[in-house]
Design a protein around this nucleic acid. Structure first.
Lengths: 117, 117
DNA sequence: ACAATACTGAACCAACTGGTTGACAGACGG
DNA sequence: CCGTCTGTCAACCAGTTGGTTCAGTATTGT
């Protein structure tokens, strides 16, 4: 079990969801899921400047989704799964909440139908 | 099985994640998970103006997370689970991707250890 | 020593956010 | 009909975002 249960504060959840709200950054997460790489290699598929990609990585870094470590003149970027899991769990919680309510409603009307009708 | 598999476009995913990146809007989702209510009732726990909450609801509405229907002078807000599921699935996909890579790496080093050492 | 590589930081810009207030519109309750 | 409740819309404002370019700093290769 890799799960660390870091428990992000609400403010950090802000950062995670904000980081994921941009298509470029989601593409970066997608690329990083395959393994760590340098900034240049990450930037090469995009039309924008290297600076722009570096800034996007900074946003991901501030959200805790990415860590950068310098190796020589390269900056190796690596995906950190913790915040992703936190965001996942937040959504999961309210999905479940909603589903539970749906089940309850279904059961409620089921009971009413058999009692009243 | 409630799952509808709506398949949101990337642009719509932008909207969903952006909508969830604000603590007020997440609190609104939380409140709406318990069932539909009016705008005033939703707004009452918050310090900000009714207009501000209405605007937040508009952002959630544009993301497809909430629908509003007029009943009398009230506007009843209701949570729509589809986009929430789509966001959930996006994260789930890359979480799995990352975990698969971790498993692979673990296995790889396991093999190397038993072969080389 | 020098040039190229791989970034990073600062300054700038237009567009968007998240809040405000004030005006307004539609639905009830007397 | 009049006032109140409920909510939206428009205008405004400061701060943030996502991009740019230019300059600067290490690191590496020749």
């Amino acid at each position: 079990m890799v799960n660390q249960m870091v428990q992000l504060s609400p403010v950090e959840l802000d950062d995670v969801f904000h980081a994921l709200s941009d298509p470029t950054r989601r593409a970066l997460v997608e690329a990083l899921a395959a393994g760590e790489t340098s900034v240049s290699r990450l930037a090469s598929p995009f039309e924008m400047s290297l600076t722009a990609v570096s800034k996007h990585l900074k946003v991901l870094e501030q959200a805790g989704l990415v860590t950068r470590t310098r190796r020589g003149r390269e900056s190796l970027c690596r995906l950190e799964p913790g915040p992703l899991s936190e965001a996942w769990e937040w959504i999961e919680h309210y999905r479940r909440f909603w589903e539970a309510r749906m089940d309850w409603l279904e059961q409620y009307f089921e009971t009413r139908r058999s009692t009243d009708g």
